[in-house]
């Protein structure tokens, strides 16, 4: 589905990513876990070509992503960022319906799709006419997810989508996201620095450190791992992680 082949990226003489090789399988939630500056966001942006590798290749659906039209590539990939990056001058409805609209869907179909998406992410239809600044942080984040799903992309990139939320709302959105994923089966790359979130959501966790991929493990493996970076994470987060990992898979 997505494949990084020996990808390196440097900018202004800084080596941001080195020799990244990673495969994301169809329908899985691959979590990129790592501390600030480890290169998670850059890795994500390689997929939709907001960043182009200095060397190596990124394949999306079996094709090198620099061999396809970049606009078409991006429209086939949902993108959710922290604080949602919603267009402040568009209503919720226009935000969610934007990609379908520019893809030329008829107006009726766009409107129906927006309603469907609102329901999917647990928002009431009356929010459609509001502006982003009239929503709570949790609602904005839901709109961000709805917008990314609107054109039904097979791939979803999520960059700390729940990072700025309070613990209760975050918990709620994580739970709903897992339920949602059972219905929509997207191939998801999910960035976080929160191990608890990673254990709960991930099919596999790829741990990054200083621009390198340290290891790729399932949540269960991660907890037992003897890898120094992985166990450092487990120690830093302390007790109660088992239950986080189990909640996700159950």
């Amino acid at each position: 589905m997505i494949e990084f082949r020996d990808v390196s990226y440097s900018v202004d003489g800084i080596q941001v990513l080195s020799d990244l090789t990673l495969r994301v399988a169809h329908g899985e939630i691959l979590v990129l876990l790592g501390r600030s500056g480890s290169g998670k966001t850059t890795t994500l942006k390689l997929v939709n070509r907001l960043v182009t590798p200095t060397s190596g290749q990124v394949l999306v659906n079996g094709k090198a992503n620099d061999q396809v039209d970049v606009i078409q590539l991006r429209r086939g990939i949902g993108y959710v960022i922290q604080e949602a990056g919603l267009f402040p001058h568009f209503t919720v409805e226009r935000n969610i319906g934007l990609v379908p609209k520019i893809e030329g869907w008829p107006e009726e179909r766009v409107r129906a799709r927006v309603q469907e998406m609102l329901q999917l992410v647990g928002l009431t239809p009356d929010l459609a006419s509001r502006y982003p600044h009239q929503l709570s942080g949790g609602q904005r984040q839901r709109v961000g997810v709805a917008r990314a799903l609107a054109a039904d992309p097979a791939i979803l990139l999520m960059d700390e989508p729940f990072g700025a939320l309070d613990p209760l709302t975050r918990d709620e959105l994580q739970r709903e996201f897992l339920l949602l994923q059972q219905r929509v089966h997207k191939t998801v790359v999910f960035v976080t620095h929160d191990l608890r979130e990673a254990l709960r959501l991930a099919s596999r966790i790829s741990l990054m450190e200083a621009g390198k991929l340290v290891t790729v493990l399932t949540p269960q493996e991660f907890l037992k791992s003897s890898d120094p970076w992985a166990s450092a994470y487990v120690h830093a987060f302390g007790d109660g992680l088992e239950s986080a990992a189990n909640r996700g898979t159950s």
């Binding site: 942006k45 990056g85 402040p88 001058h89 917008r147």
Partner: peptide, 27 residues
Amino acid sequence: VDAAVVEAGRGMGLTESQLLFQVELPL
């Protein structure tokens, strides 16, 4: 204009002219 908003738009597949006329200029 908030760079994150522009990047979100670009990441969603807006062309440069769509970004200009629908995002940057209105804002």
